[in-house]
Design a protein around this nucleic acid. Structure first.
Lengths: 216, 216
DNA sequence: TAGATTGTTAATCGATTAACAATC
DNA sequence: TAGATTGTTAATCGATTAACAATC
């Protein structure tokens, strides 16, 4: 009993978004050598409802908690990481080597999420020149689709201007990419089965601005 | 009649997140000189439900649409921008001049959202040296709270490592900041009345990874 | 035992969607 | 007029929260 979950499991997007919060908290706990943790404690620390925490845990971990004791911290961490695929490696390409693109290229935290950036592309080949030394090579756009297909890349990161985002998106899709992380502030169309995750600065700022307006 | 909305209006967060999508689409439309637009067309373009579009519009614009014609594109744009406060200016400070922080400092799009970055801070004063010429000044951390209070800054952007994020958050709050945009991958505690908007790379990647795992 | 905690079932809540009369 | 579109009211859906028996 208590084996790791396998196969597809239907899980809500909100639960998915909370999993990294749990992971962050649990890892900090582990630093304090807390071998066990209860749902009410997690809930209090993260500002959530305790039943919700229990349901989230049940959705990704097959291990039962013990009344009065709670859950085993280490096992919980392991199960969440396994569920999120942080223990395997997904290769990704990045398109658009502007300021944001280069900031992401330099980000060293991807590894902990099981993501490896294997190549970057830019319309402007000279962009590579403007770029530092510890740089992954920046390839011309023409090679994008072909490289994705050959290497079996499944993740594409879009950091080009809004105007060319759809075009880049289509190239990625035709290269077989199945998940797209879009930083361009525009709406993209993707075929069924391709996941589009928008990291929209405009939407975030909308929430901030509206709050300020109302609390004036 | 048809005056701009005033005062507080209760609006759901999901609606808020969709407003920038509408804005982006409507502006592109305007480029094509489409003076009017209907809810069904907007819905089709953005993959939404037409009733939802109408309700969202009703929540932020007091102007009625005409059967068979739809809504006036220009007025819709104006009302959404006004609702989001893009037509006024909110000043913001940024804390943490690492790669991501510097990428944001160089981002020129803030103005269109009514945001002006007036100062950046970093624990390490030398960070300024590592930085290019067209740089806003990078100030030492000690001046953070005081400057926020004196200048009446209401927005704080956190781009420091997770370990120091809560500390920075507390400084911002005690400086009177009322909205915090957090890029550090950790959970922050803010007092009632302060808005916390998380831009969490980890959460986004969780959604991507989970999708890939399931569609394997 | 007593009390904290679990896991589950039922109730609540809010957002989305369907249905439909009104109108240009 | 006919038909597309609006705005509103009612139904549906899914997620959150409350209630509670079981258990260590």
């Amino acid at each position: 009993m208590c084996s790791a979950q396998t196969g597809v499991r239907s899980i809500s997007k909100q639960t998915l978004l909370r999993l990294p919060m749990y992971l962050d908290y649990l890892k900090r706990l582990q630093g304090e050598e807390a071998a066990h943790i209860s749902a009410p404690k997690i809930a209090a620390a993260l500002g959530l409802n305790e039943v919700q925490v229990r349901k989230d845990i049940a959705a990704v971990s097959s291990c039962a908690g013990k009344p009065k004791t709670g859950f085993e911290t280490a096992r919980l961490i392991r199960d969440i990481e396994a569920f999120l695929g942080y223990d395997s490696v997904n290769e990704a390409v990045l398109v658009g080597a502007g300021k944001l693109g280069r900031a992401l290229l330099g980000y060293e935290g991807f590894a902990q999420f099981g993501i490896r950036l294997v190549a970057a592309f830019d319309r402007n080949a000279d962009a590579a020149a403007m770029y530092g030394k510890d740089a992954p090579m920046i390839l011309p756009m023409e090679k994008l689709t072909d490289l994705c297909r050959r290497m079996g890349i499944h993740i594409g990161i879009i950091t080009v201007p809004a105007e060319s985002a759809q075009e880049v998106c289509d190239l990625l899709v035709s290269g077989g990419v199945r998940a797209i992380w879009n930083f361009a502030p525009t709406h993209l169309h993707v075929p069924e089965g391709v996941l589009l995750q928008n990291e929209n600065i405009a939407s975030s700022l909308a929430v901030l601005s509206a709050h300020l307006k109302q609390s004036m």
